[in-house]
């Protein structure tokens, strides 16, 4: 299982990657939505993308809309992880195609719970990933 963590904060990417690796994902990370689209074009779809909202170049909401418009990425689960906690923003993200929504600050258990809700079947043995 592969996960792509998209956040302009390296620190948050590091934390989210560790959490996902602990439950068995191979993780990769990029700093904005445009880099994420490039990564996906080069490496193919992932099982799960964690997407921040406020990022330079291309924000998370725009990234989600672009991904959802591409049939090649139809099976990707999209989890928005953001400080944008207004209910209006949450609805906007879900309507754009996000499958789930987690607010910062998050805990490891919240992220694991969201992964469970998304119904992703994980391997028994955790695997390593990479950083872009």
């Amino acid at each position: 299982m592969r996960a792509l963590v998209i956040d302009d904060s390296r620190a948050t990417r590091a934390i989210l990657s560790r959490i996902l690796q602990q439950v068995g994902f191979a993780t990769f990370d990029v700093a904005d939505g445009q880099l994420a689209l490039t990564w996906l074009a080069d490496n193919g779809p992932v099982d799960l993308a964690l997407v921040d909202w406020n990022m330079p170049i291309l924000d998370g909401l725009s990234f989600i809309k672009i991904v959802r418009a591409n049939p090649a990425y139809a099976d990707m689960r999209l989890l928005m992880v953001t400080t944008e906690s207004d209910i209006e923003r949450m609805i906007m993200a879900l309507e754009a195609g996000a499958d789930e929504y987690a607010m910062k600050p998050f805990t490891a258990s919240v992220i694991r719970e969201k992964v469970d809700i998304l119904g992703i079947k994980l391997p028994d043995t955790p695997v390593a990933g990479g950083v872009v």
Partner: peptide, 10 residues
């Protein structure tokens, strides 16, 4: 700061 500001904004 981003998380603090985001929570204030909400």
């Amino acid at each position: 700061a981003n998380m603090t500001g985001g929570n204030v904004k909400s």
